[in-house]
Amino acid sequence: MRIKLTSLMVDDQDKALAFYTNVLGFRKKQEIPMGPYRWLSVVSPEEPEGAELSLEPNANPAGRTFQEAMFAQKIPVAAFQVEDLEHEHGRLRAQNVVFVTEPFDAGAVKLAVFSDTCGNLIQIYQPKKG
């Protein structure tokens, strides 16, 4: 058993593809039309054969309720690892990304949380060298 795929619900797949590629810098891996939606996934350019992140249409009302509640409670639904948190924070801020939690030292990691414009909060973290 391996973890090769994970997913995030997004409120609009076009918007999500633009954000996750143009802003975050991931690469599109798959885009397969499926009825009114698409099977859409991205990978990190730093790990093109690594886990794939599927950007799933959040059309189901149950998913929508979950997503809205997690957002309002300020709970991130995914966390991506970065080499240099300050650098990533500056790079994303320059592209008008809104951070709801500014970078802070949480002990074993430094972390920050931003809005992905598709209904989710995403955490980025930099583990401390130990």
């Binding site: 619900m9 009114p36 939606y37 059309a59 189901n60 998913g63």
Partner: peptide
């Protein structure tokens, strides 16, 4: 098809 849940499109 119209209201997919988690990974159901797969």
């Amino acid at each position: 098809v119209y209201f997919p849940g988690c990974l159901s499109l797969m």
